[in-house]
Amino acid sequence: MFELSQLRCFTTVAAELNFRRAAERLNMTQPPLSRQIQLLEHQLGVALFTRSTRSVTLTAAGRAFLVEAQSLLAHAEQAALTARRVARGEAGALTLGFVASAVYEFLPQVVADARTGLPGIDIALHEMNTFEQQEALRARRIDLGIVRAPMQHPGIGCECLLREPFVLALPRQHPLADQEDLGVEALHGQPFILYAHSAWQPFNELLTGLFRAHGIVPDVVQLLGSTLTILALVDAGMGLALVPHSASRIRFENLGFRPIELGAGIRSELYLIWREDNDNPALHALLDAIRQTAGALSA
């Protein structure tokens, strides 16, 4: 079977139709070039050139082979370029898991920044809760995840990406909607929609601990896991809720948001998790891009 070097010799001679000039372009002498062409013709079993003392022309077989040879060389160059880009982390494919609440602000910005800064990396998105992402990461079904709770496990990288305050979600006509300087005491006795308790959703434990510490007893009317569902019920007038600030981008007709002072340490957090033994070069490029996005949003 012929080699790429033979194809380069052939296409150069076909372009110059002169062995001396072709040899000069290839930085070689004429006899080795002639031998390469003869060997290629022997391997193909056809004559590619008609030679005379005055001219060199392509045969019909040579003209047909030239089209294919140029295509093969282009594909070979593209393959080499792709391999180098993958090795540098500039190209490749990754699977990113994320919790639903990350889509309100953070994830869309991550995807937009990655499309601009890492156009050669294909990112497949999978919505999962934190527990599902932890299991998927162990099984290598995802390359990295955006979760609500840190993952403490040997061989797993984990870092906090974002910390944001909670805001009070309430119906627009509620008396607290116009009150200045809201604090946690304003929630005492109020109908309240709370995040359900789960091992992978820390908000229930965080907020119930806050209430206990301040002696606040809201009237909990629903326990739910989805921020979107909670806000839909607030919009319907069923109660108040504390949600991450990024959720205030959600719009319902009767839904409003107010800042509220809850004290130090009461923050919503997003964590990034990944396998430290993942050898995909694109992973580290995307990790850096996600960190930059997080830094810009936190500034």
Rank of each mutant, 00 (worst) to 15 (best):
E127S: 08
T53M: 09
L223I: 06
G237A: 08
L107S: 04
P259V: 01
F106Y: 15
I260R: 08
I142Q: 02
A282V: 04
D277A: 07
H174T: 06
Q78G: 08
Q134D: 07
T29S: 15
I216F: 04
R51M: 09
G155Q: 06
R85M: 11
E24N: 02
G97F: 09
P202A: 08
T293E: 02
R35H: 14
F211W: 13
G189R: 10
L107P: 01
Q201K: 10
V184D: 10
S298R: 11
V110A: 05
T12L: 01
F257W: 10
Y104D: 12
R291D: 02
T29N: 12
A177E: 09
L94H: 02
R85G: 02
A264I: 09
H42I: 00
I123G: 07
L287C: 04
Q190Y: 12
L170S: 10
D219N: 15
S246L: 04
H197Y: 09
L137V: 06
D113Q: 12
H42D: 10
R88T: 04
A14S: 13
L7Y: 05
H214I: 03
I266M: 12
P218E: 02
R291P: 11
F98C: 03
D277F: 09
E261Q: 03
T11R: 04
H197E: 15
R21T: 13
F49I: 05
S246V: 09
W200F: 13
A64L: 01
M28C: 05
E132Y: 03
L44N: 05
R138P: 02
V184W: 09
G120W: 12
I250G: 01
A102M: 11
A139Y: 03
V99G: 00
M128R: 14
A93K: 15
L40V: 00
Q30W: 06
R172W: 07
Q109V: 08
L187E: 13
A91H: 01
